[in-house]
Amino acid sequence: MELNSDDQHETDRAAAAAYARCVAIGTAIALALIVVELIAYVSGTLSPYVPLRDLPGLWSLPMKDYLAAARVPAGWGWVALASKGDYVNFIGIAFLASITIACYVAALRRFVARRDRVYAALAAAQLLVLLAAASGLLNSIAGG
């Protein structure tokens, strides 16, 4: 179904407003989380899994060598270490990377409510792409 110009304008306005609100709130929370977590990490309030003094010998290694040398998990394995000073920072990073998912859900609801089927389908497809990436499934497939 093709929307007329006024309907489309209203749909766009509602979806953009919902998306903008979601991004603004999400980004503010993510940045606050990252600041607090960084302070907890470098101040030693939470002890890190990989000692800070060891980092200069590790951060110049290729990623795969670093993971092996520091014995740290890839994928969602970090969740088990989230109480450590370094891995607690991953909560803020994961939150930041998830904001787009939440914002697309908000926009999708507006497209569905206004029966803009084409854009509802496109937003749903984008959500599938984002969720596939966030699941770690694609990393697993690519890594064999």
Binding site: Y41, M63, A74, G75, I93, G136
Partner: peptide, 28 residues
């Protein structure tokens, strides 16, 4: 960019290519 970089960020993150000691000071 805010949409296209999100799935790429997940790939880098879950592959293990993000170090908080680099990411956090850079972002801030």
């Amino acid at each position: 960019i805010s949409v296209v970089n999100a799935p790429a960020a997940w790939v880098y993150f879950l592959e293990g290519a993000m170090l908080p000691i680099i990411v956090a000071p850079s972002l801030l």
